[in-house]
Amino acid sequence: MIDVQRLRVLRAVAEHGSFNQAAAALHLTASAVSQHVAALERGLGSLVVTRSTRGVTLTSAGRIMVGAAESVAAEIEHARQQVTELGTGRVQLTVATFTSGGRLLLPGALTELAAAHPEIVLHVREFEPEDSLPLVRQGAVDLALAYHFDGPLPGRAGGSPALEWTALMDDPLHVVLPQGHRLADRDALDLAELAAEPWVLGCLKTEAYLRRYAERAGFDPEVRGTTSDYFFARSLVAAGMGVSLIPSIALTPPVPGLSTVPVRPPAPVRHIGVATTGHRRARAEVTALVRALREQATGPAGHGAPAQAPGRGAPARPPTTGGPGD
C-alpha cells in the first residue's frame, strides 16, 4: 500500500527541487524527507528521484507518482469541501485569476453567478498562471482564469492530472508610445521598426516574450525599465522613458499622452481561458461560472478593451474570441 504522506513528501521534493527545501516547506528534517522518499522507492521497487550535488530530479516513475500525489490531494480537498458544505449548507467556490483578466471579466461573471446561485460563497485569489494552474490540479481552487502565450500552459508537469482548457478570447499585445513619437500616427507597426527604441515593460514574462519576437525581427531590445504593473509601465512611457508592449485588456484606464498601435503579423498574443479539472468541471456552479465568463469575453466587456485609442484616433482592434488553448 502506498503511504499518502510519502506521496505528499515526494510532491514537495518535486516542487522545490531539493530535500532541504522540501523539508523546510513541510516542517520536517532533510533526513526525514530522504527516508520518506527511500521508503516510497522500496515499496515501488523503482527509483522516483535522481540524486546529485545539484539537487534532485524526478525519474519517469517519479513523475507518475507526483501525478498520483496531485490527484490524491485534489480528492482529499474535494472531500473536505463537501464535508464543510454539509455542515454549513453553503457551497464554496474558489476562483484564481490574474489581475488584468480578473478586472475585465470577473466582476460581470460573478455578479451573474451570484444572482442565479445566491447560496454560493465566492472566494477570489490573485495568482499568475504558473502558480494558479498547479492549485487547480491540487484541488486548492475550483478554476483559474489564466493565460498563456505561444506554447503550452505554464507549470504542466509530466504525469500530472490533465487540465481542461476553455478558450475565452485572444488578447493581442500593442505597442504603446508617447503621443509625439515619430511612429505614433501609424495604423500598425512591425517590431523591427522599434529596434532602436528603449523599452519599458509591465511584466517579466512580457520581457521574455518580447525578446523572442525581437530576435525573429533581427534585434536585441534595450530594456530600461521593468515593473509588475502595466499601468505603471504606461506611465513611464508617458514620461518619455521608452516604448512598451501591452496586452489589449491592460490598456485601461487611459493614461494621457499616449498612443497605441497594433503590431503587424506575426503579432504577439496572449490566449486567455479557464483551466479546470474534469472532476471540478462537473460541479454545476463551476459550469455556470465558466459559461458566464464566456459571455463576458464575447460581449461588451471582452470587446471593450482597449478603451485607449491608437494613433490617429482610430478605435483599437478588439480581441477576437475563441483563441487557441491547450
Rank of each mutant, 00 (worst) to 15 (best):
E126H: 13
S18C: 10
A73L: 13
L105E: 09
V243C: 11
D131W: 10
L251C: 09
W165Q: 14
F98P: 11
P134I: 04
A275D: 05
S52G: 10
L47C: 02
R125D: 12
R291H: 09
A74K: 01
A140D: 01
A309L: 15
H174K: 09
G225P: 06
Y213T: 02
D170V: 05
H174V: 07
H181A: 05
S31G: 05
E41L: 01
A162I: 13
D326A: 14
V255M: 03
G304H: 06
L44F: 00
T84Y: 10
L204V: 05
T57L: 15
E164Q: 10
T97V: 07
T53H: 12
A162M: 14
L122G: 06
W199D: 11
V72C: 02
V9T: 05
Q35A: 00
R291V: 09
V48N: 00
A217K: 08
G87M: 06
P319A: 12
S18H: 09
A275E: 07
A116N: 12
L183F: 15
L194E: 09
G311W: 12
L106I: 13
P161V: 04
R317Q: 12
V200W: 15
S235N: 06
L191F: 04
M241G: 04
E197S: 12
A69L: 01
L110R: 04
V9I: 07
P154M: 12
V269S: 03
L93R: 02
V274G: 10
E85F: 03
Q35Y: 01
A39H: 00
E207T: 08
A38V: 00
A233Q: 08
P306Q: 05
R6K: 01
A157I: 04
V124E: 13
V290Q: 14
T99M: 05
E119P: 05
L113K: 09
P129Y: 13
V261Q: 07
G89Q: 03
T260A: 04
P268D: 10
E295V: 15
